[in-house]
Design a protein around this nucleic acid. Structure first.
Lengths: 186, 186, 186, 186
DNA sequence: AATGAATGAGAATTCATTCAT
DNA sequence: AATGAATGAATTCTCATTCAT
C-alpha cells in the first residue's frame, strides 16, 4: 500500500514529472539522473531499466490516487454529497497544480499498445477511478447508470485535462467537477 | 484546398500512421523511410526535419477533417438533423478505423508545451471541430450554450478515444456520437 | 589566359568566396549551388566533382593574379619604383577587400598534403608571386638576394594576412607592402 | 598549469595531430575515436561536442607553448642572447617535428570567423608568443620597436611554416629563427 | 551504494554524387 | 542545360545499459 521510501521515491517523483512535461520517450535516463543530482549509471542501482522506471512511476502515482483520492469514496463518516465535493476538490487540487497533465492519460496516448505492462497499470488506475466514482453515484442511480456515468466522467475529465494543458486555461476543466457534484445535488 | 500530391502525401500518410501507433518520439526517420520503401536520407528531400514531418502530418490530417468532416456542418442542402448524423457518422468512420486513436490528441499529450508550432496546429483543429459542431447546435441552442456544449463534446470525444484505444472496446466511444445527435433530436 | 565565361565563372566566383569564408571542407556543394541560385545537381553539369570546383577555383584566382598583378612586374613602360608601388597597390586592393583572406594560404593550411593536385596549384601561384617580385628586386639586388627576399616577403605577406583576418585589423598588414616598396626606394 | 591527465589528454593529442594533418572539418569524430582505439560515442564522455575537442585541443597546445617555450623569455638565470637561442631552438624543435604545421595557424585559416570561441584561443596564443618575444627584444629596442618586431616575426614564422609544409623544405623556415637571433647578436 | 568509464546500437541530419526526364 | 528525385555512405550526437572499482 504505497510507501516507497528514501531515494527511490525521489527518483520516481522526478521521473514522473519529466515524463509528464517532456513525454516518456523524449525523457532520457540522463535527464532523470540530472534532475536527481546523481549520475546516469546510478539509476540502475534502483531500477533495472527505463521501462521499470516508467511502470514504477505510474504505480507510484496510482498509489497516491488510491490512498488519497479514490479511498475517499468509501468513507462512511461523511455523507455522499460532502464526499463527492471533497473528492472533486482533491482531484482538482492535483491536476490544477500538475504540470503536464495526467501521466496516465499521457502514457495512454504515447505508449504503443504492445506495451501491455504499461497499459495494465493505466487501465487499473482508470478502473479504480471509475469504480470509486460509481460507488458514490450508486446512492442515487442504479448500478448500471452509475457505472456508465462514472466512465463518462473519467473520459470527460481526461479530455478536459488535454484541453486545459493545450490552451493553458482551466475554466472548462473546472466545469467538469461541478457537473459531477451536481449529479448528487439537491 | 489540402492536396499535397505525389510522394510527399504518401510519406505523410505513412508518417502519421506510425506516429499514431508508436508515438512521435518513438518513431524514427528510419522507421518512416522503411515504411515508404525509400532510404532514410531521401526523406530530407521532401522535409527538412523530423519536426517538419510532424507538423506537416498534423496539417495534412487537419485538412482532411476540414474538407471532409467539419465542412459538412455548413452545408445548406440538408436539414440539421440529417447533417449532424452524417457528421457523427464521418467522425466515427474515421476513428473506428484509425489505429492508434487521434493524432491531435496523441500529440497534445506527448509533445512538450514549448513546441508552439505543434500546439498551434493542434489547437487549430480542435477549434475548427468545436466551431463546426457549435454551428449546428445553434439551430436549437444559444450561441453560448452551443459553443459550451461543442467544447464539452470535443473533450469527451478525445477522452473516449483514449479509453477506446486503451481497452480495445468501442462501445462507450459510440455512445458519445449518439449523445451529440440526441441534442438535436425531436 | 584566363577568361572562363558565363555560368562557370559565376560558379567559381561564388565557390571561391565560400571556400575562403567557411573553409573548403565546411562548404558543401549545396551551399555553392544555393549561392548561385541553382540546384545542387546542376553543378555537376559544369564540374565533375567538388575537388574539381576547388582546383578550378584556385586556378581561376591564380589566373587573375597572373594577368592583373604579377604581369605588372614585367612591364617595360614604367620604371621599377613606380612598378613596385602599383604592384603592392594591386595586391593590397585585393586583400583588403577579400573577405576570408587568401584562398591559396587557406587551402595550403586546410588541405591534407596527400592532395597533390591542390598543392601543385598553390605552389604554382606562390612561385609566380615570388618570381615576379624577385624580377623587380633584381634591379638592385643579385639574383640570389632578390629571390630570397621575394620568398621572405611572400611568406610574411601570408602570415600578415592571417593576422589581419584574425584580428580584423589591417595596420600591420599594410606595413609589409611599404617595406617591400622601401627595398627599392631612393 | 596545463596538465590534463588520463585519457582526456591522450584524446587531445590524437585529435590535434589529426586536425593538423587532415584539417578540422575533414577530421571526423570517428577518425579521432579510431586513432584513440575507443568507440565513437565514448568521446562524448570526455567532450560534449566536436567543437569542444577543437577548442580544448587548441588550449592544450597553447598550454604547452606557454609552459615550455614562451616562459623561457622571462627566465632570469641566463642572459638574453642565450635565452633567445634556446627559445628559437624550442620553437624549431617543435615545428620541424610537427606534421601538418602549426595548429593555430591552420585553424586561423580554416575556421570561419563567426566561431569566436576558436578565434579567441588562437589570438591568445599569438599574443603570448609576440609578448614573450617582445620582452626579450626590449633588452635592445624600445618597447614599441620590440613589439612591432615581435609581431612581424610571428607573422613571418607562420607564413614560413606554411611554405615549409607546402614545399616540404625547411631551409627558408630555419632562416627566420636565425634572423630573430641576429636581432640580439653582438 | 555510487561513480566514472565504456559500449554498441541507433538517433537525426548532411554529403557528394548519379540519373531519368 | 537544368531539374528533382534518389542513393548510400558518413557525420555529429544520444541512448539505454553494463561493469570494474
Amino acid at each position: 500500500m504505497a510507501t516507497i521510501k528514501t531515494s527511490k521515491e525521489e527518483i520516481l517523483k522526478n521521473a514522473v514529472r519529466l515524463f509528464k512535461i517532456k513525454g516518456y520517450h523524449n525523457t532520457s535516463m540522463a535527464d532523470i539522473a540530472a534532475e536527481c543530482g546523481i549520475i546516469k549509471g546510478s539509476l540502475y542501482h534502483y531500477f533495472k531499466s527505463k521501462d521499470e522506471v516508467g511502470v514504477e512511476g505510474l504505480k507510484y502515482i496510482h498509489n497516491y490516487f488510491v490512498d488519497e483520492v479514490y479511498s475517499m469514496a468509501y468513507r462512511e463518516d461523511i455523507d455522499v454529497q460532502e464526499k463527492i465535493e471533497l473528492y472533486v476538490q482533491k482531484i482538482d487540487d492535483y491536476f490544477l497544480h500538475s504540470e503536464g497533465g495526467c501521466i496516465f492519460g499521457n502514457f495512454a496516448l504515447e505508449i504503443p499498445s504492445e506495451s501491455e505492462n504499461f497499459r495494465a497499470v493505466i487501465r487499473e488506475d482508470f478502473d479504480a477511478w471509475s469504480h470509486s466514482l460509481a460507488f458514490m453515484l450508486e446512492s442515487r442511480y442504479t448500478k448500471e447508470e452509475a457505472y456508465a456515468l462514472a466512465k463518462e466522467y473519467v473520459a470527460l475529465t481526461q479530455g478536459s485535462i488535454m484541453m486545459m494543458t493545450l490552451r493553458n486555461d482551466a475554466v472548462d476543466y473546472l466545469k467538469v467537477g461541478q457537473k459531477i457534484i451536481s449529479l448528487l445535488k439537491d
